[in-house]
Amino acid sequence: MIASLIIIGVFIVLGIILLNGKGSFLIAGFNTLPKEEKEKYDTTALCKFMGKMMLALSFSMSLWVFSEALKVRWLFIIGVVLFISLVFFTLFYVNTGDRFKKENH
């Protein structure tokens, strides 16, 4: 349970950093793009979206901790389903529709 709380804390801190539009180097795939490619994206909007997702993921993981503390198995199941759903939603949303591309490129 302590390890879960540490991971949740790290996710919350990273979420807050990203919500402030900072920390784009933390986003996998984006940090490996060449500088010319990075300039085509609205980095602040991408960071803010990923920050919201990090906070949502930390909420779903907190359900795992509550499940263990309260000995309620269905909370764990809801947390896992929510976590997996958020991961798939994030992957789909970010990688389709050029949502985070700048208008002038």
Rank of each mutant, 00 (worst) to 15 (best):
M1C: 10
M1S: 08
I2M: 07
I6A: 11
I6F: 03
I6M: 02
I7S: 11
I8S: 03
G9F: 02
V10A: 12
F11P: 00
F11K: 01
F11N: 01
I12E: 02
G15R: 02
I16S: 00
I17M: 06
I17N: 03
L18W: 02
L18H: 04
N20M: 13
N20V: 05
G21I: 03
G23T: 01
S24E: 14
S24I: 10
F25H: 09
L26G: 03
I27N: 00
A28N: 06
G29H: 08
F30W: 03
F30S: 02
N31L: 09
T32Q: 06
L33Q: 13
L33M: 15
L33D: 04
L33N: 09
P34E: 13
P34C: 07
P34D: 15
P34G: 11
K35R: 10
K35D: 12
K35W: 05
E37K: 15
E37A: 14
K38W: 05
E39V: 07
Y41S: 05
D42Q: 10
T43M: 14
T44R: 15
A45D: 10
A45I: 07
A45K: 15
C47F: 05
C47H: 03
C47I: 03
C47V: 06
K48C: 07
F49P: 05
G51L: 01
M53L: 14
M54N: 14
M54Y: 15
M54H: 13
M54T: 04
A56I: 09
L57G: 12
F59R: 00
F59H: 00
L63V: 05
W64N: 11
V65Y: 00
S67M: 05
A69H: 08
L70K: 09
V72Y: 01
L75E: 01
F76M: 13
G79L: 02
V80A: 15
V80E: 11
V81R: 03
L82G: 07
L82Q: 09
F83W: 11
I84V: 15
I84S: 11
S85I: 07
S85F: 11
S85L: 14
L86W: 06
V87F: 11
F88Y: 14
F89N: 12
F89T: 04
F89L: 10
L91Y: 07
L91Q: 09
F92V: 09
F92T: 13
Y93D: 03
Y93T: 02
Y93I: 04
V94Q: 00
V94Y: 02
V94A: 03
V94P: 00
N95T: 14
N95D: 09
T96H: 13
R99N: 14
F100R: 02
F100K: 07
F100L: 10
F100W: 05
K101F: 14
K102T: 09
K102Y: 06
H105G: 14
H105I: 12
